[in-house]
Design a binder for these strands. Structure first.
Lengths: 144, 144
DNA sequence: GCCATATAAGTTGTGCACAATTGAATTGTT
DNA sequence: AACAATTCAATTGTGCACAACTTATATGGC
């Protein structure tokens, strides 16, 4: 008989658990802003530079239009974002921040520190973790 | 003006990306078994010891009945699992493996190695990553 | 024994992820 | 100019996650 893999040895399960635990910590923090975690990620990208096309957002976040289209509609319904058909290319939809969307960035400034506090790791450990995860993600993408 | 957090500095985004990338590598591998990744996790727990109650599965995996109940129904529809009301406590539903569910474990034995190959990290790096992620998950849970 | 409380599993509703498809607009080729 | 191929966004359908609630059963205190 072949040994079945053991759950507690799986790095992937550790990854899956940690990711959900992080989202769970974000949840009450982001509730103050009225955002979910994926919505917050979209806002992070827009705060860096906007307007952005849906495709462009998807490239930054690794998400497709099937995820982003309804998410962006919800952000628009919240009044944080406007979707405008691009003039020079009618296929594209440019996502603009509204003043309310812009204004939210200052409220978001404190969030990373709150997460870092909850993580219980030293800044050096966090930085090393981020590096390992980036390497891992790149290798996993190559493997597909 | 307050600086908005930058996406590329976020450990949590690295976590979220890595977790999705891992699931994406699992997807075609698990398709051979007819399983999704969360279904595979449930099977891993059952292969270790069964029968298990829904609550017990949830404790192992960090999932609640809202996620598990429909998932277990799908596993039952696949013929891998049977749900039986427990005799001594009629509230409990014991999840039993069918012979088909048992038999699947040998096909799953090769999966961890395939993922390890795709990860592009040394066994030592993987082991260290798993340790860091466990610490992180525990701290994040404490923070909520 | 009776009842308040607790516990187990299931249901409902919302919001991702992602595959597959659709429809509209643009680009490349001839 | 015509038209095939490509690109962009949206839609449809499936399966998680998770909060909030429901129903059924069990348990502890009196």
């Amino acid at each position: 008989m072949t040994d079945a893999p053991r759950l507690d040895r799986q790095v992937c399960f550790a990854l899956y658990s940690a990711s959900r635990a992080a989202t769970a910590v974000y949840r009450p923090v982001l509730e103050d802003l009225g955002l979910t975690y994926p919505q917050y990620l979209v806002m992070l990208v827009l705060w860096e530079d906007q307007p952005r096309g849906v495709k462009e957002l998807g490239r930054e976040l690794g998400l497709d239009s099937g995820t982003l289209s309804p998410l962006l509609k919800r952000l628009e319904a919240l009044g944080l974002v406007e979707r405008r058909r691009s003039g020079d290319d009618e296929r594209r939809v440019a996502i603009h921040l509204t003043p309310a969307g812009q204004g939210l960035s200052s409220k978001a400034a404190a969030i990373p520190q709150r997460l870092a506090d909850a993580a219980g790791l030293t800044p050096a450990e966090l930085e090393q973790l981020r590096g390992t995860l980036s390497k891992l993600t790149a290798a996993l993408h190559d493997a597909v």
